[in-house]
Amino acid sequence: MRVEFIKMHGLGNDFVVLDARETPLPAAMTPQVAAALADRHTGIGCDQLIVLEPAKDADFTMRIYNHDGGEVEACGNATRAVGMLAGGNARIATSGGLLETRASEGGIAVDMGEPRLDWDTIPLAYAMDTLSLPVGWDGLEHPVAVNVGNPHIVFFVEDNDVVQLDQLGPEIEHDPLFPDRINVNVATIEDRHTLRLRVWERGAGLTRACGTGACATAVAAMRRGLTEREVTVHLPGGPLVIGWGEDNRITMTGPAAESFRGTFDWSEYS
């Protein structure tokens, strides 16, 4: 059976979207099928595979699989992309909670909900101060931990471009301190309204953009008093605007784009 797909991206963070809202997939998605489709040499190729399904209390459900096939709770860039597919305004159910999108001048704005800041909601293996974890890896020290639908730690450094994130990222991601693994963010504050960010994404590696990473990093900077409550986060793929309102909710605004559409034979990947 041939299955239709849509290739999309948000600031270069790319996705394969399978729309199963009206026509179900031939079989349940598995980590093995997701990884095979995400493979850039023998599959369609993407950072994340997205499956859209019907929902009872939302416009639809979004399931997210990383490049390695592991299912994760949230992806901010993918949320903007599927929000664009839905015409801008949508209520999207995810395993990390309900997300809402709306059209805006900057592209698609996403209400990412409230950050989780307690150690057991990150989660960490044991209790510690999430505003300054007493841990370090090869010069990266005292990170902030934030969960914005998925878990992140954030390091603030003088120049994030010189950090060997391709080497340190996988070591930190799999540290026993993080029972669900962790996304690793390395940021440099430019001024009170601007920061630069690079992200090692759990299950995907170095990425051109990470929406939840931008949200987590902005919240971390705001918690430490380093920035105002709205900032522009510059990632390798481009900028996102992140606001953390007095109502404790995070808003992320940025572009999304459709690249192309096609079909594939399900039996070749299952």
Rank of each mutant, 00 (worst) to 15 (best):
P123V: 12
D180S: 14
N89D: 15
I64Q: 06
L240R: 04
E22N: 10
H234V: 08
L206D: 00
M222D: 03
D14M: 08
E173I: 08
F260Y: 15
P239V: 07
A220W: 03
A125W: 09
H193Q: 14
N183M: 10
E114P: 00
V146L: 07
L226T: 00
A90P: 03
N77H: 04
L52W: 02
Y269V: 13
E268D: 15
V184Y: 11
G70Y: 03
A90F: 05
W244Q: 00
Y65G: 00
R21T: 13
G70F: 02
A109Q: 13
G45E: 09
G262S: 10
V16G: 04
V186E: 06
L49Y: 09
F155V: 06
F178V: 12
H152I: 06
A145N: 06
G139S: 10
S259L: 15
G87L: 04
N77E: 02
G245Y: 02
R102D: 03
F178G: 07
D191C: 05
L99C: 04
D120T: 07
C215S: 13
C75Q: 08
L117I: 14
L117G: 07
L195G: 08
A34G: 06
G83V: 07
V157D: 10
G106T: 01
H152S: 05
R102A: 14
G149A: 11
T217G: 06
E141M: 12
R192V: 11
I50P: 02
D111S: 12
R181H: 10
D118H: 12
V233L: 01
T188I: 09
E201L: 03
A125F: 09
T101F: 02
L37C: 05
G211F: 04
E73T: 03
Y65V: 00
H9A: 03
T188N: 07
F15R: 05
V17R: 02
H193E: 14
R63Y: 04
L18V: 01
R102M: 10
A145H: 10
T94S: 10
P26L: 01
S104L: 04
L52P: 02
A103V: 00
T207Q: 06
C75G: 12
E100M: 11
N185L: 08
H41N: 15
G97C: 10
D111C: 07
G254R: 11
L165F: 09
F15D: 05
I108G: 03
P255T: 14
